[in-house]
Every structure is written in C-alpha cells, then in structure tokens.
C-alpha cells in the first residue's frame, strides 16, 4: 500500500512541477493545484497509513490514527483553495491589463524585443570585463 501512495504522490508532484513550468497562466494554476494535492497527501501520510481507526474518541475503538497531520492538512486544503482563487484572479487581471495570458505578460512585439536586447547589450558593453 505504501508503494502505491508514494507513487501517487510522486506522479502528482511530477505533473504539478511540469505544469508549473508552463508559459501560460492557466496551466500554471492547474500545476500549483496539483502540487497542493501532492503536498497535502504527503503531509497526511506522515502520520502513516491507517485503515478504519479515525481519531474520534470512542470507548469501543481499539486504536486511533495520528490526528495531528490531519489537522494540519485540513487547514492546508482550505488555504490552498484561497491561494488558487487568488492566483486565478491574478491571471484574469493580467489578461485584462496586458491583453494576453503569458506568465510574463508578454507576447513581446518585435520592436519591444529589440529594445530590451539593445539595453542588455549596452549594459554588457559598458562593463570593462
């Protein structure tokens, strides 16, 4: 079972990282959401995997699972939602202000590109090295 959970976490992480590295805002938001899932499950699994023994006090219960990671992850889930919401709205704002959804806010037009290239070039020329 542990192998299975570890694989699940690692696949979610890998896909999350890949999407986070994309150039458009929407996949980045999806990637961060996936990463958040991965982190939450990872944190949760730090209490080890237990089946059928929830941490609810009951005289009949034989044992309890570790409630601490659960408490941690519960708030983490809600915070992750807050973060996703903030990010996606940031993406909308960027789209509205800049007219595109590239993470750098740029479909750089040719002359803009030239201007920045020129600036970096002069910067390097000025240095004696």
């Amino acid at each position: 079972m542990e192998w299975l959970i570890a694989s699940v976490i690692s696949v979610m992480t890998g896909c999350g990282v890949y999407l986070t590295l994309r150039a458009r805002t929407f996949p980045v938001v999806l990637g961060l959401t996936l990463l958040a899932y991965a982190v939450n499950v990872f944190l949760f699994s730090m209490g080890r995997l237990q089946i059928g023994i929830p941490a609810v006090i009951d005289p009949a219960a034989a044992d309890y699972t570790d409630p601490l990671p659960q408490a941690l992850v519960l708030t983490a889930i809600v915070i992750a939602f807050g973060m996703t919401a903030f990010l996606i709205v940031l993406a909308l704002k960027a789209r509205s202000e800049l007219g595109n959804d590239h993470v750098d806010g740029l479909h750089r037009s040719e002359d803009e590109l030239k201007a920045t290239k020129h600036a970096t070039k002069t910067e390097t020329e000025r240095s004696p090295s």
Partner: peptide, 10 residues
C-alpha cells in the same frame, strides 16, 4: 483516499 485512510474530516 482520505476516507480510506481514517481521515473523515479531510
């Protein structure tokens, strides 16, 4: 998964 692994709140 949370249901399975004893975390109903989650």
């Amino acid at each position: 998964g949370f249901v399975k692994f004893s975390a109903p709140d989650l």
